[in-house]
Design a protein around this nucleic acid. Sequence first.
DNA 1: ATGTTTTTTGCAAACGCTTGCAAAACATCG
DNA 2: CGATGTTTTGCAAGCGTTTGCAAAAAACAT
Lengths: 349, 349
Amino acid sequence: MPENGHDSHKTKLRNVTIIDVARASGVSYSTVSRVLNGFEFVKESTRQRVLEAAEKLGYVANAPARSLAGGKSQTIGLLVPGLDNGYIGEIIRGVDVELARANYDLMIYTTHRSRGKESLYANTIANGVSDGLLLIVPLVPTNYLDALRERNFPCVLIDQSVTAEQSSVVDATNWQGAYEATRYLIELGHRRIAFITGLRELGSAAQRFEGYKDALTDNNIPVLDELIIEGDYWQPLAYENTRKFLNEYSPPTAIFAANDLSAFGAMEAIRNHGLRIPEDISIIGFDDIPQASIVYPKLTTIRQPLEQMGRVAVKLLLEQIENPDRQPRRVTLATQLIVRDSCQQYVAP
Amino acid sequence: MPENGHDSHKTKLRNVTIIDVARASGVSYSTVSRVLNGFEFVKESTRQRVLEAAEKLGYVANAPARSLAGGKSQTIGLLVPGLDNGYIGEIIRGVDVELARANYDLMIYTTHRSRGKESLYANTIANGVSDGLLLIVPLVPTNYLDALRERNFPCVLIDQSVTAEQSSVVDATNWQGAYEATRYLIELGHRRIAFITGLRELGSAAQRFEGYKDALTDNNIPVLDELIIEGDYWQPLAYENTRKFLNEYSPPTAIFAANDLSAFGAMEAIRNHGLRIPEDISIIGFDDIPQASIVYPKLTTIRQPLEQMGRVAVKLLLEQIENPDRQPRRVTLATQLIVRDSCQQYVAP
DNA sequence: ATGTTTTTTGCAAACGCTTGCAAAACATCG
DNA sequence: CGATGTTTTGCAAGCGTTTGCAAAAAACAT
């Protein structure tokens, strides 16, 4: 008794299912399922018939049903605070590439710094929605991370410098990059080098700060408290605090900002103060987000291989999905000094 | 016979289900379902018991199962080309806000300009994964859009200037914005105003081009072919073509770029050519992406209310989900001239 | 108490798909 | 031609929920 769809009214039409395809091609629905999943023991002629019917009917698999029945979703989840910082977009590009290759889909969730949601999301995503989870979350997410680990759910943290022994992590050489940035300025002859910090709670910020201090110390330059400008990895605070700083103290000859966004803030403050970049103050950033090469002057910075980080993270995750017993790993990718136009040799006044 | 989970080995543990909760609280699973869904006819004491059990067991609903059984997913899908242009991030912020309010989740799919995938994705998302679809796709997606429409699946296009009679669309006043930008330059005394086009195929690009031409014409300024610089909404091409243009012709006194990214490319070319902004050439963009206010000089531009566009799109979509019979609507939001530092009064040489 | 309502609860049937198992169909061989 | 082995197929049982329907409890009238 074929349901005669005559309920008129613009009601949502029933989708075509595997059963419709089965009926149309005269086989059982399990055979259809096998064909659709590329199963081997199917007669070629049957396969053709089914494929044709599916095509003709415009069959599209119902993903939820699939993941319910099959226990896997061919989807991986990505949890990020937000998409508006130019930095995560790059990582996602890498993630996309690698995932496409493995034929997985990506589901992106933004938490927009609502801490509570983060945990709820993670748990939901880990429960049937996806086969693995990529986390780009600023603060250490111990609470729910432990829970996921307990269930042995595949997870990879990106850019989390915390020593999470139990999870796979992909990050970059923060200390080293910062050290190199600072040394570069020193080599240019600078001595009075200010530092704009990142958000205190973040491991990466701490490491960059250390790199700065160590480079100074190693070159016998004292670390001056007055030269430490409080930042939070966002532009507005860097602007504001650099402005205050310039009003209060004699200007440094160079500034190292813990990330590019902060560097932009500083640049604005410097200009408003009537100083030139790099003639009066050299400035170097960290991250190399796309904007770094479009600001003027183009920002000299330490590149984090963001796209590659995304790619590597996916590889780790996929490994873990395929082999749940695999030990968590940490992969730290090398940063690189990108010299552009925002720094110059120090010239004594 | 409670399954005694002693299979050792780090195998994926079974998640706690509604049935476990039912057992733990001594009621049937349908009652649990009712409690969890805030159903009314449940005795208060029972509700408490169930809630406690769920809490204790750490129950998290299985989304796929839910959407299979219930026929809706409380998720809406968003199809975008990519996340690396600063423009979509803004829209998503608006989307997020409005969706959170309605208690929906967002699933973001990136197509990265692989045309084929776009259609497949759209169909998959529309089939069980989400209750509605938001499309930010550059080219007109007639093929699959028709299919979705036929099934009466809720869709809203963002920033699609095509006259898709049958779908809801949210966009901005492209013509008007462009007209205003051009008029602004004219009012500053400029006559020789170049225009960097957007990608030809896009409706928005065409409209902006018209706005530019109409403004010139209305002010008795001839539209010169040589002043039209081919662009594609991306920085590199704008840079390259502006460079060529400057080598070939005498410089204009102002440039209007069809979007901010192109303006950035032009700025770079102008500087490389040894010209100053805005002293030698004024420049104005379109979009007002976040970078517009961090470049130097800060870019005067036409703001598209991106965040608001995201919000409105969600509202339209939600309306459509709740009431499938609703007619598609087009909402066009007003653009706005944002005056910053990249334009100045024309001074005769 | 008993009959009526009304509120709560449980049962069972979906939702669309995957997959183990067994039956059917086809080949092969002595 | 029957026996044996292989390749194909179909059946049925789930996967974790929601939800219509009917039964059980509780509340209220009489």
